[in-house]
Each structure stands twice: as structure tokens, then as C-alpha cells.
Design a protein around this nucleic acid. Structure first.
Lengths: 197, 197
DNA sequence: GTCTATACGCCGATAGAC
DNA sequence: GTCTATCGGCGTATAGAC
């Protein structure tokens, strides 16, 4: 037996889920409220009961994904492991997420949040990016990775896996991402490792 | 004194230029034909005299940029220089283009061509990407760069500069891109250099 | 909370005068 | 070639019954 609040929350979740699916599949501007309503098996009126606007749906999706990625990165960064292993985990988890939570990561990387949400930032220039930046700065100070500009280091850590994920999604490569993970990590690590020659 | 054909061609160029500017600034779907007409100081009717549709404008812009990037990459790759210097030039030119032809590169990287143009590919999974892929494969065979998966190598060569460019455009970093170029190249080269230790 | 019906505007595209 | 005027449609969002 569920309270009204619980059922209402479930409806919200359903709308968010279906909206994300459609935004990724067709693009934000190619998806109408009527599309979301049909996919959620509801009416447009019901959608507007739960959200104030289409932009409001996108904004909530954005906030959730920023939180999700920040939490993931923080969990890995705060684990008691070597620097090398934590960086490996970061790379592996990005690739894993591209396979297992494809829609979520596609939404994070491909939807142009800045264009949609008034005053919004691209997802990877906000919370999650800052988390990685701080982590790499600290490791540099401890001498655990090579001393380079922290922004460039962060760009290497994220740019390499992310571009591989994008060409995979574009069907430029056929093998599953999992098979690239060791080589991708090797590349990232050859940039960041402290004993550079 | 100009012929009619020449004046017509100039008008087309003007429309393309202003459309690119608006697509980058506001996004394709937030830009109407009326916006393009106003910016070009013409009427919607005149636009439709020169292009069959809004999508047709986007398609021509796409084709031109693919050609531009392919030509740039080919010129650098076919120069008689060391492998290291040619890779350096590729990195430097990407960063230079991000400063000097910002709108063009923004259009290439940020506009979701696949979403707009029926059956289109993302710009960096098409011609230009193939050019770099072939180049790196050849250099690997000659032993001039480290033997890794060619796709991963291409991803490193492009992903690192491109992500830096994107965070610059998002105002995450303040320094001009030019000041990062040597360090960015060092990072790319530490992945690709043959004498890996 | 969910529905149907509808307001209202903007869009892409076209027609036809000049 | 360029203009003005206009069409038909779809978009977001709202009103009000149930």
C-alpha cells in the first residue's frame, strides 16, 4: 500500500526516465511534451501537473546526473588505494558506465545542457570536473603523478576515454568498450605517471 | 563589375556565414529562418531562393567544414617533416583554429550534425578522423610511434586538445589556449612516442 | 491527479507581385 | 532575385471537467 506522495514520486520518476530516453534518442528539441506524454502513457496535462515546463524536466535530469557522477568520482577518489589504481578505476568506470548506463552517460555527454537550460553549464565543466581537478592537484603535490598543469591533466584523464566512448557510439569502432579499457588506461597513465622519461 | 552568378554566389556565402554564426550562438533549433534573414538583411523568401531548406543550409556548412579539416590535416600529414613535428603541428593547428576560427571549429565540434541532417555522421567520425587514423597506422608500421590500437591512438591525438578547447570555451580556464600548446603536445607525445619506458 | 479540449504563437515553407 | 503576405502545422502551456 502506497501513500499518495509515493505514487506521485513514482510518476515523476517515470516521466523523467522516459524524457531522458527520448531526449537522447531524438534530441531535446525534436522531443515534444506530447511525445513524453505518449511514451509515459499519460496526457500532457498530467506532465504539467508534475513539472512546470519542458525545461524543468531537463534541469532536473541535469542536476541528478551531476550528482551521480560526482558521487561516483568521489567514491573512487576516496578509496584507500594507490594513485595508479584509483585512476585506473576512474577510467574503467567511465567505460563501464558507457556500456551499462548508456542512456545516462549519453544524456550527460551529448545533450547540450547549456543550450537548453538558461544559465546552465556543460555537465563536465561543473561539479564532476572540479572533483577530478582537485584530486589530481593533490596527487601532484604528493608527487604521485607528474607535475603538469592540473587542467591539462584533467583533460587527459577525461578526454581520452570520453572520445573513445563517442566514436564507439558513432559506430566507428565495433569491439565492445571493455576490450579497450586496459589500453586506454595505459595511455592515460603514460601521461600522468610520475617517473616520466 | 560583377556578373549575376558572382553576386548570387556572394549572397549564398553571406547566408551561410550568418547562419553558421547563429547556429553556434543559439543552436540550430533555436534559430529560425527569420533570424537568418534578419541577420543577413534579407527576407525569408530570398533565403529560400538560394537554399531549398534550413536543413540544406546546415548540410552545406557540414560539407564545407569536413573538407576544410580534411585539407588542413592532409597538408600537415603530407609535409616532409619528422613524425613528432607533424603531430605537434596537428595539435598546434587545432588549438590555433580554436582561437582564430572559433566559430568554424565551434560549429564543427558543438553542433549536433547527426541530429539535424538525416543520415549524417558526427563531423569527427567522418573524413577528418579517417585521415588521422590512416596517418597514425602508417607511422606505427614504420615504428615512428608506439604500437597501440590505432583508434585509441587517434582518440588520444584528438581527444586531449579537443577537451581542452571545450573547457576553454566554457570559461573553465582563463589563459589563452596558445599558452597550453606545448604542454598539450607533450601529453599527446608521451602517449604516442615510440621509446616508451 | 489525470483527463480532454483548446488557446495562441512561432515555425518552415510557398505564392505571387515587383 | 527580392520582397510581402500567408498557409498549415506543431509547439508549449492552460482551463476546467471528472
Amino acid at each position: 500500500m502506497k501513500t499518495n506522495e509515493e505514487r506521485s514520486a513514482l510518476t515523476r520518476e517515470e516521466i523523467l526516465k522516459k524524457a531522458m530516453k527520448l531526449f537522447v534518442a531524438k534530441g531535446y528539441y525534436n522531443t515534444s511534451i506530447r511525445d513524453i506524454a505518449k511514451e509515459s502513457k499519460m496526457s500532457t496535462g498530467a506532465i504539467y501537473h508534475h513539472f512546470e515546463s519542458k525545461e524543468g524536466i531537463a534541469a532536473e535530469l541535469f542536476d541528478r546526473i551531476v550528482l551521480l557522477l560526482s558521487n561516483l568520482f568521489n567514491k573512487i577518489i576516496n578509496s584507500k588505494d594507490t594513485t595508479k589504481n584509483r585512476i585506473k578505476e576512474l577510467v574503467f568506470n567511465l567505460l563501464k558506465m558507457a556500456q551499462d548506463d548508456k542512456i545516462v552517460l549519453e544524456y550527460a555527454l551529448n545533450v547540450k545542457h547549456k543550450e537548453i537550460i538558461k544559465g546552465g553549464k556543460p555537465i563536465c565543466s561543473s561539479g564532476p570536473f572540479e572533483t577530478l581537478l582537485t584530486f589530481l592537484k593533490n596527487e601532484m603535490e604528493k608527487g604521485n603523478i607528474r607535475k603538469i598543469d592540473p587542467y591539462v591533466a584533467t583533460v587527459c584523464l577525461t578526454g581520452i576515454p570520453v572520445r573513445l566512448i563517442q566514436i564507439k557510439w558513432d559506430n566507428v569502432i565495433n569491439k565492445p568498450l571493455d576490450e579497450y579499457k586496459n589500453e586506454v588506461f595505459e595511455c592515460v597513465w603514460s601521461v600522468l605517471k610520475p617517473d616520466n622519461c
